[in-house]
Design a binder for these strands. Structure first.
Ligand SMILES: [Mn+2]
Ligand SMILES: [Mn+2]
Ligand SMILES: [Zn+2]
Ligand SMILES: [Zn+2]
Lengths: 149, 149
DNA sequence: TATTTGTTTAGAATTATTCTAAACTGTTGA
DNA sequence: TCAACAGTTTAGAATAATTCTAAACAAATA
């Protein structure tokens, strides 16, 4: 079947692609096919926590042709641009978080799953005085959880 | 000069070595020369934060003959035994902490230095409900700091 | 002391991540 | 519309932290 999308694929794009293109250009990155594909995986539904490997597997499963090196490049560029946050939970791999707002995490040590804790559901009273001449760059709270008993 | 320590070196050991030996045996580890050397570096003065590489460099500088593999083995065994804690701050290397009590950290993103925050100098109000059937394994607060301006 | 079991270590292997450099593509100004 | 340029992708090599292997060695035990 021939659709309008197909016919005008060189000049027309769907909504999410336009939004993504703006988002990428907004941070000084070209809207390449690979970045749009990754962006669609990352920024289309709810917030996500991914690793380079998990995202690459997902892309491959979705029939997207993209190298692992490009996934690494894109994740690092997106992070540097503020489109993603890096979350420290596992010393053996780097997690990226599409939720860039200030929030915290549950980390299931049993299965490696990360869950967001909304910013307002936790309160850190930061009484300690900072070292001289230093300011806060960020506060991360990680609550490690495990199966009962 | 001939000292008592030297003469009786096979049967007598100094205080810190005896203490360390007990500590190691207490967790089911033999008090080998290498573990005692590492233990002396780790548990003699104030609390410390080290990486395998930094501790190995320190040992070498102190004239201690020990392989990097043994440092890795010992750090992992000490952690498993509860003599050390692993601290997540840098996705590219593993930090170990001689302070195993519940406490938190400042992490200077500029120079990589870790500083303890005493347990009572920070308060985390954990309002969020845990996922079903899960219990808390630990809570880590990391305050990333950087030079002013 | 002889035996056993745990430990150390050199060097190889593993693995996440980055790098290199050549092919390719998005952007832009004419 | 398109040439030219700068940015991007990628295969494969390189890097680096960490773990593994297996042989030599040392601590515990009887
Ligand atoms: Mn990184
Ligand atoms: Mn480890
Ligand atoms: Zn998150
Ligand atoms: Zn500490």
């Amino acid at each position: 079947m021939i659709t309008m999308e197909k016919v005008f694929s060189h000049t027309r794009q769907n909504d999410s692609t336009q939004t993504l293109t703006k988002k990428l250009r907004g941070v000084g990155l070209r809207a390449t096919r690979q970045r749009l594909d990754i962006g669609n995986l990352l920024f289309s539904g709810k917030d996500r926590h991914v690793t380079a490997e998990s995202l690459h597997d997902e892309a491959v499963a979705a029939g997207i042709r993209i190298s692992l090196a490009t996934i690494y490049n894109a994740l690092n560029q997106f992070r540097d641009a503020g489109l993603l946050r890096e979350v420290l939970v596992d010393p053996s791999r780097t997690y990226f978080d599409t939720n860039t707002s200030s929030h915290h995490h549950f980390f299931n040590v049993d299965n490696g799953h990360l869950t967001d804790i909304p910013h307002d559901e936790i309160s850190v009273s930061c009484l300690p005085t900072l070292p001289e001449g230093q300011i806060i760059d960020g506060v991360d709270v990680l609550i490690r959880i495990k199966p009962d008993a």
